[in-house]
Amino acid sequence: MEKALNVLVIGGNRYVGKRLIARLLSEGHRVTVLNRGSSPPPAGVEQLRADRDDERSLTGALGSRVFDVVVDQVCYTPRQAAIARRVFTGRTRRYVLTSTVEVYEYEDSPALVREEAVDPSTVTVDPDQPWDDPAFLEAHYGEGKRQAEAVLAAGPEFESTAVRVAHVLGGDDDFTGRLAHYAERIRTGEPIAVPTSNRPATYVYVEEIARFLAWTAGEDFTGPVNAASPGALSTEELCAAVAAHVPGGRTEFRPIEVGEVSPFSFRRSYGMDNARAARLGFTFSDTRQWLPRAVAETLGKGD
């Protein structure tokens, strides 16, 4: 086994985070989780309770603890990143930020986008925006992540990497309800609203992104890295996988020019190139290998 690490996971209560913690434990690492304490951690994990937006609270909860690696699952704004950078200076040698494909929201190309399309060193940081306003943050999710990446990458205090995660599928605890949306539309025959020009996107299986984050914690590369399975999916392909679990259902698409569309349907491309991850030594499995299993898990149709 590789050297056991002392890892702090910020967030980690649900979905990807809880799978990341389970994987780290199974690999023999020491794990501490820091969150608001809304649910107890698994056995073998120390829990620290703090408000990550409150620098004093965060510092107090950490005490004198130091870590080999911090994996931050819930950093959404440059303010949060700036607090983290100050608090963890001298406490860790490596910082892994869970970022998102949404950082590429302005890169609309049929070609798969590479990491250099959004270089954190060129991103303008504006901490004075109303980042504490939930509506503003939701509307500027990609921008918040871009700026958080930039803040963490700017200093020499510790090494950092930003894992840009594709749209995640799978698991019986997917809280988003997106696949359930499609299952209900197909069951009732209600039209599924999609853009008139509906673009495909890349995805990643929930268990695989947890494995990738755990692997990244033990590596030493820096800078952004795309985390996505090869094989972009269209909304039609995704719905076909859902329809396999809805006997007697009917799939009808309604293309619209403007207005709200269904989840996992896109007016711009959200395809990521994963060549950097492959060069670094991690291979993602093809989307179509795990898609039937992921859909079955989420819709409660697994074995």
Rank of each mutant, 00 (worst) to 15 (best):
A275N: 11
R288F: 11
R52D: 03
E237L: 12
V33T: 15
E138A: 15
L48H: 04
G271S: 13
S64E: 15
V118Y: 03
A214Q: 03
E159T: 12
I10T: 14
L137F: 07
A22Y: 03
L112S: 12
P200Y: 04
N13M: 13
I83G: 01
T77P: 03
P110N: 07
A148R: 00
F212N: 00
E105F: 15
P230H: 10
A277K: 01
T98A: 14
V103Y: 02
V225M: 06
D72Q: 08
A84S: 15
L24A: 12
L5M: 15
A201C: 09
D54G: 05
Y95K: 06
S121D: 12
I256E: 07
G142P: 01
R146A: 03
T59I: 08
R85Y: 01
R276K: 15
A22M: 04
D286S: 12
A22G: 13
V206W: 01
T176Y: 04
V45K: 06
Y203K: 01
Y104T: 07
P40W: 07
A150N: 02
R52T: 08
A275G: 13
M1P: 10
Y203S: 03
V295M: 05
T122G: 06
V69F: 03
T287Q: 08
V16W: 00
V204P: 00
F284N: 02
Y15C: 04
W131L: 05
W290K: 03
D108Q: 10
G28Y: 07
V113N: 00
A84L: 11
W290G: 00
N35K: 08
R94N: 06
V246P: 01
G218Y: 02
T283N: 12
A240T: 09
E55Y: 08
S99D: 05
A227K: 00
Y270Q: 11
S234Y: 03
L169I: 14
E46K: 13
H245D: 06
Y203I: 05
L169W: 00
V74P: 00
T98L: 13
L20C: 07
A244N: 02
G142V: 10
V113C: 07
A117W: 01
L97P: 00
K18E: 12
T222W: 04
P40K: 13
G177A: 10
V242D: 03
P110F: 11
L238W: 06
I83E: 04
D128P: 00
E46W: 04
I83H: 04
V101H: 01
G259R: 09
S285N: 12
A294G: 08
R94D: 03
Q289T: 15
H140V: 05
R19I: 05
V125E: 05
L5D: 09
A240E: 15
S57W: 04
L48F: 05
L137V: 03
S269W: 15
D68F: 07
A43I: 02
V258Q: 14
T176M: 11
P292K: 09
S197C: 09
R185M: 09
R36T: 13
G259L: 11
R86Y: 09
F284C: 02
N274P: 10
T298V: 09
P127E: 15
L8W: 02
R56W: 05
A61E: 05
P195D: 10
N226L: 07
P292M: 09
T202D: 04
G177R: 10
L291V: 10
R199V: 01
F221R: 06
R288Q: 13
L152G: 02
E102N: 13
A228F: 07
N226E: 09
V66E: 14
G37W: 04
T196H: 10
L112K: 12
P134R: 08
S38K: 14
